[in-house]
Write a protein that binds this DNA or RNA. Structure first.
Lengths: 342, 342
DNA sequence: TCACAAAATGAACACGTGTTCATAGTTCTG
DNA sequence: CAGAACTATGAACACGTGTTCATTTTGTGA
């Protein structure tokens, strides 16, 4: 069929075979402009037989925009991060785009990364990194590339944000702990936490303060010197060596929570026997038998869907009013703070 | 500086500003052809001031090859998969490429996926999926796109493979279990396992058979009806209800192993008290206090590096002899089968 | 049948780059 | 010093597509 094997079949080939002009082929595949029904059929048949497929590079060059969407991720080893990426990939592909994924190690790489995005004329950029790449995001905006941030509020003009409802999550956690009879509460977070963590902590404090009108409650803060599982574990050990006592703990994320639980176990304490524990982010890990952690579950599919919706909206009209959308969360009751039977 | 804000600065702009031809600009940025030292400096200065950056779409169109590398992943929620992706991303970026990541849910999506890769004229494709996309891989080969598979042997012409040393891993595991005094051994795998799993099982059986010359050993097979953590857990429960007894278990992957351990715990057994347990894949999860699983650790960085090396080699010369490279693994001793003090 | 609107079509341009080719300038060599 | 070898440079073409703009064909109502 294809005489020259090394020559990728082009729209011209299809046009020649179908006996029409190349413009007609282009119109057929973009559904742009009008083309007679039988002509379209001839073209589609010829394309099918030749195995024609549009060259996205040429298409993007012409349209000044590719079907690519840049995704900035960090620390994929964190289960929540990888689940979020999974959700984003799924959504991106469903909408007919392709994901250009970049992991940033040290922040200085990020400049080059975003630059590459613009060089590929991406249709949009999703930033899931905790560290805010302010300068580069501005560069994108300047290049007219829509940007959306996830779980991270940045004070940048013309950028949208999707965020899980930290307020709601913290309130649910506070409610559950208090209803379970906890009076001495703790908030566990990493020392140099991301914005999400800080935001959840503030919301938790507010929720507790509000409840203090009804009953006497005590809130202390436990600070982890590392992030992730190990951070939570050493925080627990340190905490046990102090003479503090606590009945209910709320953690900034699931990794910290699992680590904290394991650290407490090493010291002879366990949940829910000796204290209640609630984490943020409902990952596979938290559901496992060894943890069975009660958590605040984020709606990843909804988050991803809204992120892409933002990108598309801003792609159509760059002057859209910046959105700051909040996605509802839910309380997932498991063993470390079990359901109440009233 | 830039008069027309909506007009991306092009090589022609740089040429005009520097008072040279556009060809000189191209030569400067590609290090192709010769350009006088002072001319180059003029051009670089002008480019710097204008903020010029090469349009990768145009470049790719011309070169018939983009700086993109397609990565096919599946089940990112599996910690090992996401760590592998992390390693690949890092290597891809270090080599100056960009990753086009696609997650495939059901296998029928994969055809369209690979088609998209070819439409973007990727420089190579990395397949990490367990399911073998034979047809599409062939399509890539036909389009002269290098393909490399990871941890999956496929019988396809002109495709390279990188694989962790399952033979070595299984032998190390057998040695450790036997040296620890286990005589009744079991191999746990998912019913419809990937090639990796099957390969590890065969190697384990071989290793045991070899050892049987010296002492009497017993090997049974435990089959999980699901994959992943839950598969391991239910397999353990089922196993306990049988009257079989076992002293050392080797699992096809870490998720199965963690699940199996938790399942056994639910039934009142624990490792290493009642049996020894070794898994494959050393992930963050296995290191955590609640599991402290002895595992076979894969060298992800090395695997990723070799994968890219294969792609580049085949990119230079498509007729290279197909490689099947084996990456050494190591035994990571932890609690479920502790180190021996001889 | 005619006038006119609407649909269909192809020629031509634009997108931004890499690379070949011929030419002018420069250095080397015997 | 003449010729050769080499470096530097710009004009021109190719890459494969989308889209505009005339032009031709078709359809419609009177």
């Amino acid at each position: 069929m294809n005489i020259n094997k090394n020559h990728a079949v082009t729209a011209q080939d299809v046009a020649t075979k179908a006996g029409v002009s190349r413009a007609a082929v282009s119109r057929t595949f973009t559904n742009n402009g009008s083309v007679a029904k039988e002509t379209r059929e001839k073209i589609l048949k010829a394309a099918q037989e030749l195995g024609y497929q549009v060259n996205f590079l040429a298409q993007g060059l012409n349209r000044k925009r590719s079907q690519l969407i840049g995704v900035v991720v960090a620390r994929l080893s964190d289960p929540f991060r990888s689940r979020l990426l999974e959700g984003l990939l799924s959504e991106i592909q469903n909408k007919g785009y392709q994901a250009l994924v970049t992991e940033i190690g040290n922040p200085k790489d990020l400049e080059e990364t975003i630059r590459r995005f613009t060089q590929f004329r991406v249709s949009g950029v999703v930033v899931t990194s905790g560290q805010p790449p302010t300068g580069l995001v501005k560069e994108c905006v300047q290049h007219n590339i829509p940007v959306v941030g996830i779980n991270r509020h940045m004070d940048i003009k013309d950028v949208d944000f999707i965020c899980s409802d930290n307020q709601m999550g913290a309130t649910l956690a506070a409610q559950q702990l208090i209803d379970s009879g906890c009076h001495k509460l703790a908030w566990l977070n990493y020392k140099e936490s991301t914005w999400s963590g800080v935001s959840r902590g503030e919301a938790f404090r507010n929720a507790i303060e509000q409840k203090q009108a009804e009953q006497v409650l005590n809130l202390i803060q436990i600070t982890a010197l590392q992030d992730g599982y190990e951070g939570g574990r050493s925080a627990a050990k340190l905490f046990c060596r102090s003479d503090e006592r606590v009945e209910g703990v709320f953690c900034a994320n699931a990794q910290l929570a699992c680590g904290f639980l394991d650290g407490m176990r090493e010291e002879g304490f366990d949940a829910p026997r000796d204290f209640h524990l609630i984490g943020f982010d409902d990952t596979e890990l938290t559901a496992q038998y060894s943890y069975r952690l009660t958590t605040i579950g984020q709606d990843i599919e909804e988050t991803a869907a809204r992120a892409l919706s933002c990108l598309e909206a801003r792609g159509r009209d760059a002057t859209t009013e910046p959105r700051f959308e909040v996605v509802p969360v839910k309380l997932v009751l498991r063993n470390t703070s079990p359901a109440l039977f009233c």
